[in-house]
Design a protein around this nucleic acid. Structure first.
Lengths: 138, 138
DNA sequence: GTATTGACTTAGACAAAGTCCAGGCTAGGA
DNA sequence: TCCTAGCCTGGACTTTGTCTAAGTCAATAC
């Protein structure tokens, strides 16, 4: 946690109370929060923090590769602090619950050269969809 | 094309001029249009068609499994009429271009039972990211 | 400890994407 | 031809995110 903040300071980040709070919220017990959810939790610790600052900070963390942006449903983006461990997502079509999962093999390897159309491929994101045990119950 | 409309009529769909136009636009030469782009093209054929109708019709086509919704960048959703052929997407991080690609193997098979957490998995969506030949040029 | 300064933050306006609603219209069956 | 449930429209509204001008403050230098 303060690892993260120290790392960012080393990269020229100013260490403000707002950024500290956003980082703390992301590393709390809830993962995959939306920007608005991050803001709501941040406000509890720092009542005057603005929405714009939360958006800015999240955007910077994504740019710096410290946080992953996950587009689950085309609505609000979600932010995943677990960016340093390769993983994919499993989403419940019923209730929207998200779990981190670790499939076997590298999805990029599954794409033959003839299907790459000359692109330089930098990453692959896999989203599994299904019903969680609660939503699948009859 | 009229295959599609006949199929939908068989499912109890009313065949209105608005729905016909939306289906025609989707099957035109551009794939992966946003809802707004679909609307813009539909208006050229049927000037009084409303945005709400385009959104409703696209939503119904997605529900019926005739069209795929693709969330490329967390902004506008895009609609892919090629829903009956399993495929994934390759997106250029530079210009946003999208190509349909066909990876080898089934991504669902790559997810071991221990990583499914009791979910009933219904599908997997793979998004490859990279730079297209034009954007990769120095 | 104080001064300085440029990066950071704020409030609020704005924009884009999508949804909802009341009222009018119409495709398809009788 | 008539009827009616389902469909469409325009416009207001919501949600998510961005931008801007003015004020604030962390880090550095003195």
């Amino acid at each position: 946690m303060s690892d993260l903040l120290e790392r960012l300071r080393g990269r020229g980040w100013r260490l403000t109370s707002q950024r500290r709070v956003v980082a703390e919220v992301l590393n709390g017990d809830h993962v995959h929060l939306t920007a608005d959810e991050v803001h709501a939790r941040a406000v509890q610790r720092l009542p005057e923090i603005s929405r714009a600052t939360v958006y800015n900070t999240l955007g910077e963390l994504v740019t710096l590769g410290e946080v992953l942006e996950v587009s689950t449903d085309g609505r609000a983006k979600r932010y995943d602090p677990n960016a340093h461990h390769a993983h994919q997502h499993l989403i419940c079509s019923g209730c929207g619950a998200i779990r981190d999962v670790h499939p076997q093999g590298d999805p990029i390897a599954a794409l033959p050269a003839t299907e790459r159309f000359g692109f330089v491929i930098s990453g692959a994101e896999v989203t599994y969809r299904g019903l969680c045990p609660d939503c699948a119950r009859p």
